[in-house]
Simulated scan of single mutants.
Amino acid sequence: MAARSYGQYCGITTAAELITERWALLIIRDLLVGPRRYTDLNQGLPKIPTNILAARLKELQEGGVIRRIPIPKCGLVYELTDYGRDLEPIVLALGRWGFRSMGDPKDDDIVTADSLTMALRTAFRPEFASASLDFQIQVDAVELRAQVGGGELRVVQIAPPAPPVGGVLPGGEPELKFATGPDLRHLIAGTLTPAEAVKQNVVRILQGDLTSLERFTTLFHVDS
């Protein structure tokens, strides 16, 4: 449990004391993608001081949110407990809520593989996912492969090299491959159409066509 106490007997207070210390939610965000070693978490959160990372991991363990377990060929990893995984719909809802206030990125803001994965999960609309889509997305040095089918989204990290506990998708070429940047949010919010996004170089289609990109915008949308 974090040292800070609000001194109130309330479920919201308890939640705030457990998960709202600086960096705690981002650690939880990354662990929602999958188990991570200490080094994976440190690399995915490059601005976090190592003493703060160690402290947050200890607090989250003591709060029953995460646990540390051995995995063959990986060593010790951190993963969410069942109690911690109950945070997933809350974190995704927070992501959708925060999307409306993101604005333009600062010069030193970065996109990580885990943050992009969670952004896709935040914007994913399973109610429109009866049709399939296999796509690959590049944002600067980050590259992900994703597949939509049967109302589900699966994402794996291609670059930078994925953690050893990452998932694997079936092989073959994706039907859509595109490169983009932070302005992708305009496409996801619907303030740019796919055709406008391509024309304005917000999206560069590397493989596939505009029809596939239009299907992407049907599957991934967050109100601005």
Score class of each variant (00 low, 15 high):
2 A>P: 00
2 A>L: 05
3 A>W: 05
4 R>W: 08
4 R>Y: 11
5 S>D: 14
6 Y>M: 14
6 Y>C: 07
8 Q>C: 06
9 Y>P: 00
11 G>D: 09
11 G>H: 08
11 G>L: 15
12 I>V: 15
12 I>N: 10
13 T>I: 14
13 T>F: 04
15 A>E: 03
17 E>H: 08
18 L>M: 14
18 L>I: 13
18 L>S: 04
18 L>G: 00
19 I>H: 04
19 I>K: 07
20 T>D: 12
21 E>G: 14
22 R>Q: 13
23 W>T: 00
23 W>P: 00
25 L>T: 06
27 I>R: 01
28 I>A: 05
29 R>T: 09
30 D>P: 02
30 D>E: 11
30 D>Y: 01
31 L>I: 11
31 L>Q: 05
34 G>D: 10
35 P>M: 04
36 R>K: 15
36 R>H: 11
36 R>I: 03
38 Y>P: 03
38 Y>C: 07
39 T>F: 08
39 T>Q: 14
40 D>F: 08
40 D>H: 08
40 D>W: 07
40 D>K: 07
40 D>R: 07
40 D>C: 09
41 L>P: 02
41 L>Y: 04
41 L>H: 03
42 N>D: 13
42 N>G: 02
42 N>I: 00
43 Q>I: 04
44 G>P: 03
45 L>R: 02
45 L>F: 03
46 P>S: 08
47 K>T: 12
47 K>P: 00
49 P>D: 12
50 T>L: 05
51 N>D: 12
52 I>G: 02
52 I>D: 12
55 A>S: 11
55 A>E: 13
57 L>M: 08
58 K>D: 11
59 E>Q: 13
61 Q>S: 15
62 E>S: 15
62 E>R: 12
63 G>V: 07
65 V>Q: 03
67 R>D: 09
68 R>G: 02
68 R>Y: 01
69 I>G: 02
70 P>S: 12
70 P>A: 11
70 P>Y: 10
71 I>T: 06
71 I>C: 03
71 I>Y: 07
72 P>D: 11
73 K>R: 15
73 K>W: 10
74 C>P: 00
74 C>I: 12
74 C>L: 11
75 G>K: 08
77 V>C: 05
78 Y>M: 06
78 Y>Q: 07
78 Y>R: 01
79 E>N: 05
81 T>N: 04
81 T>A: 04
81 T>H: 03
81 T>Q: 04
82 D>A: 13
85 R>V: 01
85 R>N: 12
88 E>I: 01
89 P>M: 11
90 I>F: 14
91 V>C: 10
93 A>T: 12
93 A>Q: 14
94 L>F: 09
95 G>F: 10
96 R>T: 10
97 W>I: 12
97 W>P: 00
99 F>H: 13
100 R>S: 15
100 R>G: 07
101 S>V: 14
101 S>Y: 15
102 M>A: 15
104 D>F: 10
105 P>T: 07
108 D>A: 09
108 D>V: 07
109 D>V: 01
110 I>P: 02
110 I>N: 03
110 I>W: 08
112 T>D: 06
112 T>R: 06
113 A>H: 10
114 D>T: 13
116 L>S: 06
117 T>V: 03
117 T>D: 09
117 T>Y: 01
118 M>S: 05
118 M>R: 14
121 R>E: 12
122 T>I: 10
123 A>K: 06
123 A>R: 06
125 R>E: 09
125 R>T: 00
